[in-house]
Simulated scan of single mutants.
Amino acid sequence: MNCSHVLLKVRDLHEAVKDFRELGFVVDYASAEARARHAHIWFAKGPIIELLTTPPKAELLKWPIDLAFGRGSGTRMARWARAPEGLCDVAVVTDENDLAVPSHRLRQAGIATGRAVKWTRTRPDGAQTRFQFTYPRNDRLPFLVTPYDPPQHPAEVAHPNGAIGLSGVLMDVSPADRPAFDLIAGDDPVFTATTADLTRITAIELSGLTGDLNPALLHGALLRPASRRI
Rank of each mutant, 00 (worst) to 15 (best):
G168R: 15
D182A: 14
I201H: 00
T75G: 13
T199D: 03
A58F: 11
K45G: 01
T94Y: 08
L144E: 00
R71L: 11
K9S: 02
L209M: 09
R11V: 04
P225Q: 06
L213I: 03
P175D: 11
F131M: 12
R105P: 00
N161F: 03
R137A: 10
D139G: 15
P56F: 01
I49N: 04
R35Y: 09
D182G: 12
E15L: 14
A32N: 11
D197C: 01
L170N: 08
L60G: 00
V145A: 00
T146A: 07
R71T: 11
D89Q: 06
A185D: 07
N214A: 05
H40K: 12
P160G: 10
E96A: 13
T129V: 15
R21H: 05
Q132P: 05
I65C: 05
N214S: 09
H159C: 10
C3N: 05
I48A: 12
L213S: 06
V101H: 08
N161Y: 07
T53K: 11
I41L: 01
A34F: 04
D172T: 10
P150A: 06
D19A: 15
R37G: 11
L87I: 08
S167Y: 02
R79A: 15
L52I: 12
G162F: 04
D149R: 14
G186H: 08
R37V: 09
L67D: 09
G74N: 00
P56K: 05
F20L: 13
G126Y: 02
Q108F: 00
L218F: 09
I184N: 02
V157S: 03
L8N: 09
A39R: 04
V26I: 15
D187P: 04
R82P: 02
W42C: 04
A100G: 06
C88P: 00
R229P: 05
S167R: 08
D125C: 06
A112D: 15
P160E: 10
A163E: 02
G168K: 12
E59S: 12
L223M: 14
D172Q: 13
A44Y: 00
H5R: 09
R123P: 05
T54A: 03
R107Y: 01
Y135V: 06
R79D: 12
T192F: 08
R178N: 05
F191Y: 13
S103N: 14
F131A: 08
L218R: 07
W42D: 10
Y148S: 12
L218Q: 13
T202E: 13
K18H: 14
G211D: 10
R21F: 00
G72C: 06
R105W: 05
A116L: 01
A163W: 01
